[in-house]
Design a protein around this nucleic acid. Structure first.
Length: 715
DNA sequence: GGCTGGCAAACA
DNA sequence: TGTTTG
DNA sequence: ACAGCC
């Protein structure tokens, strides 16, 4: 079997079953199944098979054909047990069966590397174990020896083997092979520099958690940030997101929280967050967070994620292979996948150091000078990111460049970089985009009259001061017409991009599409979980047919178009006011700004209140129109008042938006004399897919739920 | 109870 | 393609 | 072990 990979495919003689729970959804299972089959494996549909016992009764057992049961690594033990129960299997039948229960990474990694990964390194721990116990190591040790010769690097398994349970640290002094500047001793696991201290003690006086204060709010927010980071490292993106959002929300409150009820009922704040606020008020700490701190594995994952280019997935694999600390990895850099990661391993300590605003500004200055020297008067540079948001401890430098004229972006950034590299200022490139690729795929099928402009993105490392640390620097160049969108995008990316997510969702609700390049009308082919069986076809993608762009010359105009307050950079956070402004109802009231002929109705013509996906498809226009007519006709007076209702709810079109629409019209006219209204570039590919979809929709409508649709009446 | 959750682009 | 980043 | 929506 060690030799088989080349002959029969990676998965030859494997029969996999995918557990559709947790993060392993249908669409992912479909794609994975396809790959397994392509590479010589089999996918089994039923986890059980029935047999007839002596008394002639039907019984179920674990399907003996299965060699591997693939489980989402984030699926909880309980979730897995529930799955077993639902499949009328017992825990025991699994443990005694021949099928190996492996995490989904086993499959993706095997497929990626073209080498079947060692099962034992990817075992899914569903048997009894403390949530944190890294008990797998011992088992894999025994098993790995023989079969394992072809898994990626030789078994690096440092001395940790034996350490597993008794974790009392054993911080054996690293022999510092990679001569690091000893800037920070850095206990990882703790947040980035010192936040932990602030939580526990408070640097300037401890926070009195029994007394309401804004300080106490911040203190609570930090707890949520810690939770969020923990979940991030364990690849639980949604809890990461939720807690991170909660942290931002609480930190942004302008009134002290008096009781847990103060935050209840806010958009995005649910029972779990409320409970935890309560717990903080009652006990001054969070049990969950304490568990996190004790969780050796989690702390290791967090430290691994400090390497730029290593995320939760890679971190999990490193842990599975026996690495426990960053030092372990420094001793075995070959454990990392790419050269870039190995380079970034050396930057870990430097990148953990924050900069002052002045430092950032002087770096910005240096780039500005170079720009002025090479291309005098041609470029405009702006500091974005956390600096623009007014923060004081900065992790990186984020510079946005545009031409002062309307010419397309070319090699300007490259020239600046070349020169600065020659001076030893830029010392590494982590990622560099090809200037001409910029306009290729931006956010779906582009509008035929306005496919967008090329842009350039550089992510790299600079070394402003030979005696100081190296710094992360991003330089991006956009076409002038798209510059404001880039500004919004690269300023709003707080934390996990909460602000961007909220306003983009809002745009979607208005039937628009907001990206870092443009704002445009959009037709979305909504992403549905396909009801295909695994292996057949892929789930429908969330395709966007881009409609007309809505040109905005400033951030102000972008916010105006979305009908929300133009916030100064430092207020680009998802606070209560924003969530309110961006509620679905509001979006729907504003929709007619850009879809003047659209009526938003459910099937019976009643005014919509809920429903998120705005779905429409070009080629259904005709059909919809007919439907609309017949409906509105024979609905008669009965429905009339509904329409009035809806009209009443509409928000008046602001002057600014009229201006934008006017500008849009002028641009269109001058461009090509194109009429207003969405132009469809491409028809959705498979005819049958559409048929299916139509059917599905009719069905839901028939069931009375009623999709909201935007119905267009032709211009 | 099940599904979705902002987006795009580079890299291997 | 999945993973990671901004 | 999250929140909001059908």
């Amino acid at each position: 079997m060690a030799e088989s990979p080349s002959s029969g495919g990676v998965f030859s003689s494997c029969s996999l079953y995918f557990v559709r729970r947790g993060d392993l959804g249908l669409s992912r299972i479909n794609t994975m199944s396809q790959r397994v089959k392509d590479k010589g494996g089999q996918v089994i549909q039923d986890i059980t098979s029935t047999f007839i016992d002596e008394e002639g009764r039907e019984k179920k057992e674990l399907n003996p054909a299965i060699t591997h049961i693939v489980v989402a690594k984030t699926l909880s033990r309980q979730g897995f047990l529930r799955f077993l129960h639902d499949s009328s299997l017992t825990e025991e039948s699994i443990s005694t069966g021949r099928a190996k229960v492996v995490r989904d990474e086993w499959m993706t990694k095997s497929s990626q590397t073209g080498k079947r990964q060692n099962d034992e390194a990817y075992l899914y721990q569903f048997t009894e174990s403390a949530p944190s116990a890294p008990s797998s190591a011992s088992r894999s040790a025994a098993a790995s020896g023989g079969s394992d010769s072809h898994t990626t690097p030789p078994p690096p398994l440092p001395q940790q083997q034996q350490q597993q349970q008794p974790h009392p640290v054993v911080k054996q002094e690293p022999e510092d092979e990679l001569a690091m500047e000893p800037h920070v001793g850095e206990g990882f696991g703790l947040g980035e520099d010192g936040e932990e201290l602030m939580i526990e003690g408070g640097e300037d006086g401890t926070v009195d958690y029994t007394k309401p204060s804004l300080e106490r709010n911040k203190w609570m927010a930090e707890h949520f940030t810690e939770l969020s980071k923990g979940y991030k490292a364990s690849s639980d993106q949604w809890r990461h997101y939720t807690y991170s959002r909660a942290a931002k929300f609480i930190a942004g409150l302008d009134k002290p929280i008096l009781s847990a009820d103060d935050i209840a009922g806010q958009q995005g704040i649910g029972p779990r967050v409320r409970e935890k606020v309560q717990e903080l008020l009652d006990t001054g700490k969070l049990q969950r967070l304490n568990n996190f701190k004790k969780d050796e594995r989690l702390q290791a994952l967090r430290s691994f994620c400090q390497i730029w280019g290593v995320g939760p997935s890679m971190a999990g694999r490193l842990w599975a292979r026996g690495f426990r600390t960053l030092d372990d990895i420094k001793k075995h850099p070959e454990a990392l996948d790419t050269d870039r990661q190995r380079r970034c391993l050396k930057y870990v300590d430097d990148f953990a150091l924050k900069m002052t605003r002045a430092e950032v500004e002087s770096i910005y200055q240096r780039v500005c000078e170079k720009a002025a020297e090479l291309l005098p008067g041609e470029l405009h540079l702006e500091l974005c990111g956390s600096h623009r948001r007014g923060e004081t401890h900065l992790g990186d430098i984020d510079i946005l460049v545009t031409r002062t004229d309307d010419r397309e972006v070319g090699t300007e950034v490259q020239r600046i970089l070349d020169s600065l590299s020659g001076e030893g200022f830029i010392v590494d490139t982590l990622s560099m985009s090809e200037p001409d690729k910029g306009k290729a795929v931006q956010g779906g099928i582009p509008h035929p009259e306005d496919p967008g402009h090329p842009s350039v993105t550089f992510l790299g490392v600079c070394w402003p001061d030979r005696s100081g640390p190296k710094r992360r620097i991003d330089i991006k160049m956009w076409h002038r017409s798209e510059f404001p969108f880039a500004l919004v995008h690269f300023t709003g990316a707080v934390g996990s991009g909460h602000f961007n997510r909220v306003i983009r969702q809002h745009a979607i609700h208005m039937g628009l599409h907001l990206s870092e390049h443009k704002l445009c009308k959009a037709m979305r082919d909504s992403k549905r979980k396909a009801d295909h069986r695994p292996g057949n076809r892929r789930a429908a993608q969330d395709k966007i047919w881009q409609g007309q762009v809505i040109p905005c010359e400033s951030e102000e105009e972008i916010f105006a178009a979305l009908g929300i307050e133009c916030r100064p950079p430092e207020r680009r956070v998802p606070d209560q006011a924003l969530m309110l402004e961006c509620s679905k109802e509001n979006a729907l009231k504003k929709m007619h700004w850009f879809w003047p002929d659209a009526m938003v109705l459910d099937r019976s013509g009643s005014p919509l209140v809920k429903r998120q996906k705005i779905e429409h498809k070009a080629e259904e226009h005709a059909a919809i129109k007919d439907e609309t007519l017949t409906q509105t006709q024979h609905q008669g007076e009965d429905q009339n008042h509904h329409h009035q209702h809806q009209r009443e709810e509409r928000l008046a079109v602001p002057a600014k938006v009229l201006e934008l629409l006017d500008r849009q019209k002028r641009m269109c006219d001058s461009h090509r004399g194109v009429g207003v209204g969405p132009r469809i570039v491409k028809q959705p590919p498979a005819a049958e897919k559409k048929a299916e979809k139509k059917e599905a929709r009719v069905k839901t409508e028939g069931e009375g739920e009623g999709e909201v649709r935007v119905k267009m009446e032709d211009d």
